[in-house]
Design a protein around this nucleic acid. Structure first.
Lengths: 104, 104
DNA sequence: ATAACACATAAGCACAGACTTATGTGATTC
DNA sequence: GAATCACATAAGTCTGTGCTTATGTGTTAT
């Protein structure tokens, strides 16, 4: 199940860091490694997990592979979260404001 | 970090099922086990993980312990998700509609 | 008071998964 | 065309974690 892949992928702190870096801008695997003290194979494996979860997608450019955030993964999380809207606290007003922001 | 506990807790399919059951209505640990083929200690351990993550909270009633969804956990997920709003696809319009629904 | 109950905790085991080193694959450079 | 580069894959190791059985703690019932 896709939902399982998503949560399992995000359960690892290293992968969340990678995702966060990609959210700040598309990058190839080597650039992602900068300042992360992680081996090249480890990075490649993490990216494979994120890709399988639909959180990240690749775009081959010669011998480089550019990675970027895949909106589909975020949509799955949003849909999962929406199932429990009955329990959303008032604090989620912040989220509502953000969405209102998107209307502009 | 709290964020880590949340994603790690939800990475387990059994715990997601438990959370889903609790979202349908508060229950004690024994009731949760119904139709789940899971031992009593396993259930207790899963609930401890969900509680530590802030996804679930307990309410002691005599020798029973009633469990319910804790909105705080969901809020943390929503806040994490909000960080990446720049990448939200149009599909998340569904979420916007739900929020509009809450205004009533 | 003693038994039965609801749940938590302890200890041990088995498997998943995050890492390592080594090697493979395809593209670029010289 | 040989070397180098960017990345993927393979195989093995080690830690984390979800399970088990056994036992502990507190509550209700008889």
């Amino acid at each position: 199940m896709m939902e399982h892949d998503i949560f399992r992928a995000l359960a690892d702190p290293t992968r969340r860091t990678i995702f966060e870096k990609l959210a700040a801008g598309s990058m190839n695997a080597s650039a992602l490694r900068q300042g992360m003290d992680i081996s090249q194979p480890a990075m490649s494996q993490h990216l494979a997990v994120l890709r399988a979860a639909g959180l990240v997608r690749e775009q081959k450019e010669g011998r480089f592979v550019n990675y970027e955030v895949d909106p589909d993964g975020l949509a799955l999380i949003a849909e999962w979260l929406a199932k429990y809207r009955a329990y959303w606290p008032a604090r989620i007003d912040a989220l509502r404001l953000l969405l209102k922001d998107m209307d502009q």
